[in-house]
């Protein structure tokens, strides 16, 4: 006959309690009013003027868009979605505030993240790679403007 240790005897009760607490807290979350995306995009307005005015040194380089697509898939798609349309974890990058943001503003956001909202800083990517991501985002914005879905 298998003897259960004290920990094993208590484990089901602890698991049930944890499950109940998590489910309850999950229900509370769904009852809250949905967050508007305006507050998320608000951080785009926080970029310093000097940063917003920076020009993308890789603008017009088709290789930069292709490399940016690859980098986006590696580092950003997990939260923003493969097509940058957003997910429960992060907002869409095809929304008007992002499409209208300057290259410099997007670069600033990628570099600094939005730490208090869960977006990590991405300055660990070398500067040219961040510009490549910006190039890709701008190409998405362009196609979304021309062919809105």
């Amino acid at each position: 006959m298998i003897r259960f240790t004290r920990l094993e005897r208590q484990a089901p009760a602890v698991l049930i309690l944890a499950f109940a607490v998590t489910v309850t807290s999950g229900q509370e979350r769904t009852e809250r009013p949905a967050k508007t995306h305006r507050s998320v995009y608000f951080d785009l307005t926080q970029a310093p003027e000097r940063a917003s005015a920076r020009q993308n040194p890789l603008a017009g380089d088709p290789d930069a868009v292709a490399a940016g697509r690859k980098l986006f898939g590696m580092h950003c798609a997990e939260c923003h979605g493969n097509m940058a349309r957003g997910s429960p974890r992060a907002p869409s990058l095809l929304a008007r505030p992002v499409r209208q943001a300057t290259d410099g503003t997007l670069f600033w956001i990628v570099t600094n993240g939005v730490v208090r909202r869960g977006m990590p800083v991405w300055s660990k990517l070398p500067e040219p790679e961040r510009w490549q991501i910006v190039s890709y985002l701008k190409s998405l914005a362009m196609s979304e403007t021309l062919y809105p879905q």
Binding site: A67, P126, P128, Q132
Partner: peptide, 17 residues
């Protein structure tokens, strides 16, 4: 420092970046 600062457009194992 990475061997290269720009990413290549293609997926590769031995890219310098």
């Amino acid at each position: 420092r990475p061997f290269a600062l720009k990413a290549s457009p293609n997926r590769c194992n031995f890219c310098p970046e």
